[in-house]
Amino acid sequence: MLDDFMVRAALAGIGVAFAAAPLGCFVVWRRMAYFGDATAHAAILGVALSLAFSVSIFVGTMTVALLMALVVNVLSGRGYAMDTLLGVLAHSALAFGLVAVSFISGVRIDLMAYLFGDILAVSRLDLSIIWGGAALVVALIGWRWSALLTSTLDEDLAYASGINPKREQLVLTVALAITVAVAIKVVGVLLIAAMLIIPAAAARPLSRTPEGMAIAAGLIGMLSAIIGLRAAYVLDTPAGPSIVCVAAITFVATSILRGFRHTR
């Protein structure tokens, strides 16, 4: 079954959607959308470094994404607004990454594959890394769920319950870096943030509890992956963007649904 590239692609898409759903909910609740974007942009530098030192792309992107997230964590609240800081770090990492790629002689790499992903070229090894990473992210967030949720509601409320919100923020940061690293092959740097945010946003009108929203986001993400891939096959369109398009259409649909409920 795994010999079929379409099956491997679908499984890869479902794996990414699985990890992105609970994480994406926190990204939406905490207004960290740009943070996800920035971490993903920095990952291009990771791609360049992995090629230069010939280590696995996953290791390279994860290291850079993690470093980037930690630097932001440390520097935030020290004289620069968060969005300025993210803008500086993300785009300089992207620029340095692109320059670094040009220095690598003898290797012609297809940068497009990293910017937009190449889900149809997912190998069995990729698949196991994606699912391993996704399981790790979901386990991490599941383990810290209550503490993360309390910190998201209010930092002082968390402190009063004996939770350190700074530590919980770090958990999210690490989870984000892992997700970026495993998703880069599937949807690419430019569309990772879309897989985090759009399913979560589309799930919002359907949910009454945080857990419900995370599960709904997961289902929407997985369905988007399957339908998007099918559409890409039938219509001969690029696979990664097609997945994001389906998620976006779902978002529009649930928003309209909410509009109807409000007017009633």
Partner: peptide, 18 residues
């Protein structure tokens, strides 16, 4: 405290935190 509109949560779920 400010509860973000994007976070759906019922009173009873809130009281079960953490």
């Amino acid at each position: 405290l400010h509860i973000d509109e994007t976070l759906p949560i019922t009173v009873s779920r809130f009281l079960k935190l953490p």
